[in-house]
Amino acid sequence: MFTLAPQLQNDCIELADWPLCKVLLMNDSQYPWFILVPRKEGLKEIIDLSEQEQIVLTQESAKLSCMLKTIFTPDKLNIAALGNMVPQLHIHHIVRFKEDAAWPKPVWGVLPSKPYTDDQVAKIKEAMNF
C-alpha cells in the first residue's frame, strides 16, 4: 500500500495523480517547485522501478517539464532525484529564474519557505489543468 512520506505530506500540496506518479507542489511560493512521487511502496531509487515503470516515469517527468516550461518560461529547469533527507523516491522539478533569490545556487535552505495562498494554488492548478 503506497503512502506518501511524512515530510512530503507536510511540505507539499497534492495536485494530481498521474498513471504512475503523484504530482506535488512544494509549499514555497518563492520557487515554482514540483515533485513527482511514484505511487509504489518501498522505492528509493529509479532502478527500483520495473523497466516499464522507468519509461512511464521518464514520460511523466517530460510531460511535467514541458508544462512548466510553457507556463513559467524559466531560464532553467532543475530536475533531480536526491533523497538524502527523504529516502522515498521522488523527483524534484524546480523552475529557476536568474532573478530568483537563490540563483545560481540550489534553492535548499537559502530562505525560509513562504507558503502559497489558496488563490495562488488555484491559479497554478488552473494553468496546469488540474
Rank of each mutant, 00 (worst) to 15 (best):
L15S: 07
P106H: 11
I55S: 10
I47R: 12
R39V: 01
K44E: 15
T58R: 11
L49I: 02
A16M: 10
H93G: 05
I124N: 01
N78W: 03
K76S: 09
N84F: 12
W108R: 11
G83C: 08
I13A: 02
N78E: 04
L8A: 05
A80N: 13
K69Q: 15
L77Q: 08
I124T: 03
V95H: 02
I55W: 04
P38N: 06
P115R: 08
L20K: 06
H90E: 09
I124A: 05
I35E: 05
K22M: 09
Q54V: 05
L36C: 08
P112V: 06
T73C: 14
L82E: 07
V23L: 15
A5G: 02
D119F: 10
V37L: 05
V23C: 08
I47H: 10
L8D: 09
E51L: 14
I47C: 09
W33C: 01
W18N: 04
N84V: 02
L15N: 04
P112W: 11
L4D: 10
N27P: 11
E53P: 00
K63Q: 15
N84T: 07
I94V: 15
E60I: 08
K69L: 06
C66G: 10
A16F: 03
S29Y: 00
K40P: 00
Q9H: 04
K114T: 14
D17Q: 13
C66F: 04
Q88H: 09
V107T: 14
D118S: 14
V56M: 12
V37I: 10
V110E: 07
P106K: 11
Q54D: 09
I47D: 12
K69Y: 04
D28Q: 08
E53H: 05
K22G: 03
D100L: 06
Q88L: 08
L57G: 03
E60S: 08
L36V: 05
V37S: 08
L68C: 15
K105L: 14
